[in-house]
Simulated assay, not measured.
Amino acid sequence: MTKTLQHKLELGDGIYTVADISEILQLPTAKVRRWLAAYWNQYSWTIDRSVAVSFQALVEFYVLYHLGEAGIPTKAVIRAKTALSEWFNTPFPFAQKKIVENIQTDQYRIYLEFEGHIVSLDGTKQLNLEFIRQFFHKLDFDQESIALRFWPRGKEKSIVVDPQRQFGHPVIGTSNIYPETIYGLYQGGESIPFICSAYDLVEKEVQDAIEYCKAA
């Protein structure tokens, strides 16, 4: 594993490749690869020739992706990211709830207003803030409003992405079982009651794992 620039990978950060990000966030692989090249060459690592990022970068990526889809120039987003990183002393400001909650939009501008600071992000399209707000409803935060874990299908489902468990790979509920493991058995013809018994899961957890893998 090689590291670029100064961001150090630590246990509990999670490790997410382009394929992982595309699967977890349900975004096109080609766009994920292009946006990673634009924003995170300084906060990424090369693992077996694949670019990988941490959990905080995964969360921030979703926000910046939608800012880009709203037509905001890459340079404008990078300027905003740099300014907010300095104010809040974090390389991933858009992974913080208190910052994202203060994104505002009108017919002409997208801007951030926080504690007297205003950062304007002029786009060519209207930003759909509901996408970002729905995404943040699927996150758990610590006491400093920094993202801790992500529930890809919503908190009513059993699949969770937690950088403290299994290197951040999606797992089922409180177990360390991968959804793909369950889905592979299901595709192989095993019954849901059998899978529940074999892996000590309830039927809803098995159904949630199958649903997650089908969506991915």
Rank of each mutant, 00 (worst) to 15 (best):
L64W: 11
H66Y: 14
A70M: 09
I72L: 07
P73A: 12
P73R: 02
T74V: 13
A76W: 00
A76S: 08
A76V: 15
V77D: 03
I78H: 02
R79I: 05
T82Y: 03
T82H: 07
A83S: 07
A83P: 12
L84T: 11
S85P: 05
E86G: 06
W87P: 01
T90F: 06
P93H: 06
P93Q: 07
P93A: 02
P93N: 06
A95M: 08
K98V: 14
K98M: 14
K98L: 15
E101I: 06
I103F: 06
I103D: 07
T105I: 12
Y108E: 15
R109D: 02
Y111I: 12
Y111M: 07
E113T: 13
E115P: 01
G116N: 11
H117Y: 14
V119Y: 08
S120F: 06
L121K: 09
D122G: 08
G123Q: 02
T124C: 05
T124Y: 05
K125V: 06
N128E: 06
N128T: 10
L129Y: 04
E130H: 00
F131W: 04
I132G: 09
R133T: 07
F135I: 08
F136G: 03
F136Q: 05
F136R: 07
F136D: 00
F141K: 01
F141W: 10
F141T: 00
Q143H: 11
L148A: 02
L148E: 04
F150Q: 03
F150Y: 15
R153A: 13
G154D: 13
G154H: 12
K155A: 05
E156Y: 10
K157E: 14
K157W: 09
K157I: 07
S158I: 10
P163R: 09
Q164C: 09
Q164W: 01
R165A: 07
R165V: 14
Q166S: 13
Q166C: 15
G168A: 10
G168C: 11
G168T: 02
P170A: 11
P170T: 03
V171M: 09
V171F: 13
V171C: 06
I172K: 00
G173H: 04
T174W: 04
N176C: 00
N176L: 08
Y178R: 04
E180S: 03
G184E: 15
L185C: 05
Y186S: 09
Q187E: 01
Q187Y: 00
G188Q: 12
G188W: 04
G188H: 02
G189T: 04
